[in-house]
Design a protein around this nucleic acid. Structure first.
Lengths: 250, 250
DNA sequence: CGCTCGTTTGATATATTTCAAGAATTGTGG
DNA sequence: CCACAATTCTTGAAATATATCAAACGAGCG
């Protein structure tokens, strides 16, 4: 049993190890990162656009999202995050935050001083690569979202989002892709897909009446994965999930 | 005069030094990276979606763009790149390319083996940070594009794109923000903004008749920067250009 | 000089938004 | 545990920004 087995940072380590093989010393160093665990309520803002955060934060439980406000006060959601995601390293590394980070649900986050992350990266190239990889996958997801919002119709955008959340929750060990927690309201789905809440509602009902999904409370049940993926023009390659992780059963 | 003063990689070094201070040894190591310079024609594809590139490439001259093809064959342009940009490190690091990279104009690119980049990063933490920073700014630009395509109307999207290209060319030392090369056709602008070429044409004429820009051949002259920035809901903070660089005259 | 590619213009179609209001859930304090 | 408030979801009708289709015009190029 390694030292730090009681560290709160296991979810982060789990994710980093999916990106790059880390030896025991690397893993121990990740777990030994200084951090403060914060319990935080739904809707709470973690970082404001324009802040100069000194820490980045790993999500331990619950869901968060990033968003920006455009002129007229309209909101665009940029990404959704869950257990193991290192959600604010961008803002911390770039000194001045260029977007907001907010909790979608209540949850726990670990605040890690950015200096400690940089020191660890300088010392341990494998960890640096894993961290870099994490932010590169982040970028890959942003690219796919540009396509989603720019070139797909409403129904396709929504189906695509549902597929992404399914696979990422599966990757994070939060359940199977066919039945998972959906922490977003229809208005939030609208802000993530560049639509209005009213139109999201109609499209979601369409997916339901067509028998692709069932929605109960705050969860999604996928009736036919292949059909939903087709409806969402969804090809999971952009998530860069290793074959071994993707293939593993829930 | 440092060694490698005749290296082709000066544009890359220039950019990295804008992100992080590098000492002479770091700089020399960057310039000493193994590379092959390729002259490449307009429209040529550098990397195909699905490839497993072994190299990343720094743009030495000319313009490139990244794009994805969605179902139905529609194209979404993800970003535009110019001198000094390290354009394909994402695809190389992530092993399998998740988007295409193609030349917008003819130009020269330096192909650098990804292994050499990783070795350099492991050896020189400051260089690693600069490279990471470069990819993080890349991500910041993607985020802004999600907002642009998701939550702004046609005229605003186009004005925003024009502002971004102006400032980035200024940053790259390619001219002033008020008069710069515009390497994109209206159809390409459409694919970058999630619109149709016809509509881009109408909006562009609107910006012209309103006296915000003038367009001659393949260049843009900005009549009133403040007005164009306002029309484009443009706040340059997301580019993370250091004050000293942004403030400097063209 | 003729061809190709890019731009411009017009008329019509349509996906999505907007506005409005009622129904269903969820949350909350007593 | 209930009653009330506040979200969230649902539905309908009308408005509009943008897409689509089609054709002419202009410019660069071999």
């Amino acid at each position: 049993m390694p030292r730090h087995s009681n560290s709160a940072l296991h979810p982060l380590l789990r994710k980093l190890r999916q990106w790059r093989a880390l030896d025991d010393a690397d893993a121990a160093a990740v777990l030994a990162l200084p951090h403060v665990v914060r319990a935080i309520g739904a809707g709470q803002v973690v970082v404001w656009d324009g802040d100069r955060p000194q820490s980045c934060c790993a999500i331990l439980s619950g869901f968060a999202f990033r968003h920006k406000i455009a002129s007229g006060g309209v909101r665009q959601i940029l990404s959704v995050h869950m257990r193991g995601d290192l959600v604010d390293i961008h803002n911390a590394m770039l000194r001045v935050a260029d977007h907001n980070v907010q909790m979608l649900t209540e949850g726990q986050i670990a605040m890690i001083p950015i200096d400690a992350v940089l020191a660890l990266s300088a010392e341990r190239p494998r960890v640096a690569e894993a961290l870099w990889y994490e932010t590169l996958v982040d970028g890959a997801i942003f690219r796919e979202w540009i396509v989603n919002v720019g070139r797909r119709d409403a129904r396709t955008r929504i189906a695509h989002l549902l597929c992404e959340l399914a696979l990422r929750q599966e990757q994070a060990g939060l359940g199977g892709r066919l039945d998972y927690e959906m922490p977003m309201t229809q208005e939030q789905i609208a802000d993530a897909t560049g639509l209005t809440a009213v139109h999201v509602n109609r499209m979601l009902m369409g997916l339901r009446t067509d028998g692709l999904i069932a929605r109960t409370n705050r969860s999604i049940t996928v009736a036919d994965w292949a059909q939903l993926a087709a409806a969402g023009d969804f090809n999971p390659r952009y998530l860069h999930i290793p074959e071994t992780v993707l293939a593993a059963p829930a």
